[in-house]
Design a protein around this nucleic acid. Structure first.
Length: 487
DNA sequence: GTGAGCTTAGC
DNA sequence: CTAAGCTCA
C-alpha cells in the first residue's frame, strides 16, 4: 500500500490479475481501492514471455470460466476487467501509455518464468518512474525466506513443516472491496472469446462442466461443503477415492480463486470449536503445497530435470503404445484405468489414485516420469507448476524426500485396500461394473462364468493386463540396479 | 560430531 | 521381515 500513498496523484492504478482470480483477500486490489484513485483491473493472457509454459487444455477451460465470473463481479463493483494478450511487460507498457497510470500493483507469482517476467516489469517501472508493488496471497510463506539452520533450502518435508510451524502465524485474510472507482478512460479490451480458451471441435468439456464451478463463489461453496461434510474424518477417509473424501480445492487454489490464508483462517476457527487430528492433517497438505513451491524455487528446472541426478542414468523404455494405453485408461488394471478415466472426464484425479497411476507409469511401464508430468499438465484443472513436477518426481523416486524405490505399488492391493467395494472402479470403468467385489480389481483372475455373467470379455470389452505385476516389479528393480551401476 | 527420525508399503 | 542413506538440528 505504501507505493500508492507515496505517490499523491489522481492518476489511475493498474491492478494485474493473473492466477489470483478473486476479489476477497486480494491485497493488490484492496491497495488500489483504498487509495481512492481510479482503478484499471487487467488480465493479460501471456503465452509469450520467455520460459512461459503454455496452459494445458483443462486449465484453459477453467481460466475461461473463471475470467467470466471475475469480469462480471468487477463490472458490478464498477471497474470492468480489461483483457489483453501478449508479453506481460509489453502489454503493461501499452496500457500505461493509454491510461496515464503511474502505479502498478500485483500479487506475486512463484514459478521461474513468472518471477522473471514480474522482475522485468518492476525493473521497467523503476526506470520509468512508475510505482510498482507486489503482494503475498498465493503462498503463506515466501519460498526464499524458509531456510535450514545453515541457510540452505529444505530437502525433507518434515523439518520444512516444523520450520513453518515455528514461524509467524499467517496473516488474517482480507475481505472483498465493497466498491471500486473504475477508470473511466477509453481502454480497449479484447473479448474473452478471442482468447480461444475453450475447446472447439470436439467439445470435451462436458464432464468438467458437470464436476466443477470455477470462480470465487464456487471456491467458497467448495470450502463450505468441505467443512460441513468432509473435514470430520478427513485423516481416515482421505485415501478413499470412491466418495468425496478430500477438499477438492486444488483447482480453485491453482487459479487463486481462494487463498491459503482464507483456508488457514477457516481451519483456525474450526479448530477452536472442534479440535482434532483431521484439521492438522489437512494443514499438512497445505504445507505440502508450500514445500513443492519451495522445491521449485530452488530448482527452477524441476519439471524437466531429475532432482536426484542419479536418475539421469535410469534406463527408461520409451514405448508409445504403452504410454497411450496408460493415457486412455486401458492398461487392464482397473484402479489405474479408473484413475486415468476420471482425469480425462473430470480434469481431476483423487490423490491416492494419482500415486497409483504415477507409480504404474514409471515402474510397471518404465515410462519416463516427464511423460506423465506433461499429460497431467494438459489434463488437470489443478495443474500446478510446483506440485505437478514435485509429486511426479516424488513417486518416480528421483524427487525430494522420495519413497525408497523398491516400494513399488501393487495396483491390485491398492485397489482392494482403498476401493474395497469397487465403487470408484465401477463409476469410471463401467464395463466392469457388474463384476463381484472380489474380482473388481483383478478381472483376469475371475472364472469364465463370473466374467460372462458380468458381460466382460477380457481382451474385447476390457483389456488384459498390459504387464504382469510380478514380472514388472522385477524389471523395475533391475532397472534401478542398472541405474546405480551394480547391475 | 552425533543421533533421531524419515507421507502415502509389499512380500 | 525387508533394507538406505541422509537430512537436519
Amino acid at each position: 500500500m505504501s507505493a500508492v500513498k507515496a505517490t499523491p496523484s489522481d492518476k489511475p492504478v493498474i491492478v494485474l490479475f493473473r492466477h489470483d482470480l478473486r476479489l476477497a483477500d486480494n491485497r493488490a486490489l484492496s491497495a488500489a481501492t483504498t487509495s481512492g484513485r481510479p482503478v484499471l483491473p487487467v488480465f493479460i493472457l501471456d503465452e509469450e514471455s520467455r520460459g512461459t509454459r503454455p496452459l494445458g487444455g483443462a486449465r484453459r477451460w477453467w481460466l475461461h470460466k473463471s475470467l467470466e465470473r471475475l469480469a462480471e463481479k468487477l463490472a458490478e463493483l464498477g471497474g470492468p476487467l480489461t483483457l489483453r494478450k501478449g508479453k506481460m511487460v509489453e502489454v503493461v507498457k501499452a496500457l500505461v501509455d493509454e491510461s496515464g497510470a503511474d502505479t502498478l500493483l500485483w500479487n506475486r507469482r512463484y514459478d521461474p518464468a513468472s518471477m522473471a517476467a514480474d522482475k522485468a516489469l518492476k525493473q521497467w517501472a523503476r526506470e520509468s518512474n512508475l510505482a510498482a508493488e507486489s503482494f503475498d496471497g498465493h503462498l503463506l510463506h515466501e519460498p526464499s525466506l524458509v531456510t535450514t539452520g545453515n541457510g540452505g533450502p529444505y530437502k525433507v518435508y518434515t523439518p520444512f513443516w516444523r520450520a513453518l510451524a515455528s514461524s509467524d502465524e499467517p496473516r488474517p485474510p482480507l475481505g472483498a472491496p465493497r466498491a471500486l472507482n473504475g477508470f473511466r478512460g477509453p481502454i480497449e479490451s479484447m473479448k474473452l472469446a478471442a482468447f480461444e480458451l475453450l475447446p472447439s471441435q470436439p467439445d470435451w468439456s462436458g464432464g468438467l462442466r458437470a464436476a466443477w464451478m470455477p470462480g470465487e463463489e464456487g471456491a467458497q461453496a467448495r470450502l463450505r461443503s468441505f467443512f460441513a461434510d468432509t473435514l470430520a474424518g478427513y485423516g481416515e477417509n482421505r485415501d478413499l477415492p470412491g466418495t468425496v473424501t478430500t477438499s477438492r480445492l486444488s483447482p480453485h487454489l491453482a487459479h487463486g480463486e481462494i487463498t491459503p490464508y482464507q483456508i488457514w483462517d477457516a481451519l483456525k476457527q474450526e479448530a477452536s470449536s472442534a479440535p482434532g487430528g483431521d484439521i492438522e492433517k489437512f494443514r499438512k497438505e497445505i504445507g505440502w503445497r508450500e514445500f513443492c513451491h519451495h522445491l521449485l524455487f530452488h530448482n527452477p528446472d524441476l519439471a524437466t530435470k531429475n532432482y536426484n541426478s542419479a536418475f539421469d542414468a535410469f534406463p527408461w523404455r520409451p514405448d508409445k503404445a504403452r504410454l497411450a494405453a496408460w493415457q486412455r485408461g486401458r492398461t487392464g488394471y482397473p484402479i489405474v484405468d479408473a484413475g486415468m478415466r476420471e482425469l480425462w472426464q473430470t480434469g481431476w484425479m483423487h490423490n491416492r489414485v494419482r500415486m497409483v497411476v504415477a507409480s504404474f507409469l514409471t515402474k510397471h511401464l518404465l515410462q519416463d516420469w516427464r511423460q506423465g508430468e506433461v499429460w497431467f499438465w494438459d489434463t488437470l484443472v489443478d495443474a500446478d507448476p510446483a506440485s505437478n513436477p514435485a509429486n511426479w518426481q516424488w513417486v518416480a523416486g528421483s524427487g525430494a524426500d522420495a519413497a525408497p524405490y523398491f516400494r513399488i505399488f501393487n495396483p491390485v492391493l491398492q485397489g482392494e485396500k482403498f476401493d474395497p467395494d469397487g465403487a470408484y472402479v465401477r463409476r469410471f470403468v463401467p464395463e466392469l461394473a457388474k463384476l463381484p467385489d472380489r474380482f473388481i480389481h483383478k478381472p483376469w483372475q475371475a472364472p469364465e462364468r463370473a466374467l460372462s455373467k458380468a458381460g466382460v470379455k477380457l481382451g474385447e470389452t476390457y483389456p488384459v493386463p498390459a504387464v504382469d505385476h510380478g514380472r514388472a516389479r522385477e524389471r523395475a528393480l533391475a532397472a534401478h540396479k542398472e541405474m546405480k551401476g551394480d547391475a
